[in-house]
């Protein structure tokens, strides 16, 4: 059992949990993830390690409540325990040798991109952060991201923070200004990562994306998380989750992500139904 030592509500649906897991905290690197299971009937879900504290022995996860399991997770409080918490899984991001990086996060992806930005910043790279959200209310981690960035652009789809547009608009401006960029890291919805990768490809800028396919074990034994990279099948859980964005078959990845859409809805409905029952008495 893994104890929750801190909880923060970042916006209406995004929550942060800091979890006691000393062995994982000791080894975790930016780009890696954990798999957790909340209870005996629960499923195993992957979540990126958003931060870690080696001294305190804690690992931070940030997640959006999108279905049954994340909803159950979001209802837990400090002192509660998570049944299973496995990691660190996947390969660490390769961040050596870059001088001028643009780190792009879309929505919750900002939380996932944060450890990479922090690491690059510590390693002396110039970090430009572009974080995109649907509206002002959804903005998360602004302070944390600013602290590890040389410059930061926060966009909202509806312009409610005064900077209307998509992350790709800001990236295009940087490229048009002839900023010398040697690395782009893009993390967020597949469609965003696809558009960023298309844009950087035409300019020959190295681009890393972090894939988030359906996973079960997270240790390479099932292939549920397979993605096509440069024409070859790779398992995101062991070969990734970081890959070269120019090599990814995004359309296939988007299609595979919808595989359990109906069941996910069913599970959520049943969960809400039960909750309703409890509330109604």
């Amino acid at each position: 059992m893994y104890k929750i030592v801190k909880k923060e509500v970042l916006n209406a649906t995004v929550k942060l949990l800091e979890i006691e897991a000393p062995l994982i905290a000791k080894k975790a690197q930016p780009g890696q993830f954990i798999i957790l299971r909340t209870d005996e009937e629960g499923e195993r879900i992957p979540l990126t390690i958003a931060d870690y504290d080696r001294e305190k022995g804690t690992v931070t996860i940030i997640f959006q409540q999108v279905g049954k399991t994340t909803q159950v997770l979001g209802a837990l409080n400090v002192g509660d325990k998570i049944l299973d918490f496995v990691g660190p899984l996947g390969m660490a991001s390769h961040l050596d040798g870059y001088k001028n990086a643009v780190v792009i996060g879309g929505g919750l992806g900002s939380a996932i991109a944060y450890p990479q930005a922090k690491k690059l910043h510590e390693m002396g790279a110039k970090v430009t952060t572009i974080a995109g959200f649907r509206n002002k209310e959804l903005i998360i981690l602004e302070k944390e991201m600013s602290a590890v960035s040389n410059q930061i652009f926060i966009t909202t789809d509806d312009g409610s923070n005064g900077n209307k547009g998509f992350v790709t608009d800001e990236l295009k401006k940087l490229i048009d200004q002839d900023t010398s960029i040697d690395l782009v890291i893009a993390i967020g919805p597949l469609i965003m990562m696809k558009f960023v990768s298309q844009m950087t490809k035409s300019h020959g800028i190295k681009t890393l994306v972090s894939m988030n396919p359906v996973m079960i074990d997270g240790t390479g034994m099932c292939g549920g998380c397979r993605v096509t990279v440069a024409g070859e099948t790779k398992f995101a859980c062991v070969d990734g989750p970081d890959f070269d964005g120019h090599d990814i078959d995004f359309d296939e990845a988007m299609r595979r992500q919808t595989m359990y859409k109906e069941q996910e809805a069913e599970s959520m409905d049943q969960h809400n139904c039960r909750l309703g029952g409890i509330i109604d008495g």
């Binding site: 499923e43 195993r44 079960i216 996910e264 599970s267 049943q270």
Partner: peptide, 14 residues
């Protein structure tokens, strides 16, 4: 994961 008990167990299978 006992997907044969879905949705009583959370893991789906198709």
């Amino acid at each position: 994961m006992k997907a044969y008990k879905f949705p009583d167990c959370d893991t789906p299978v198709r």
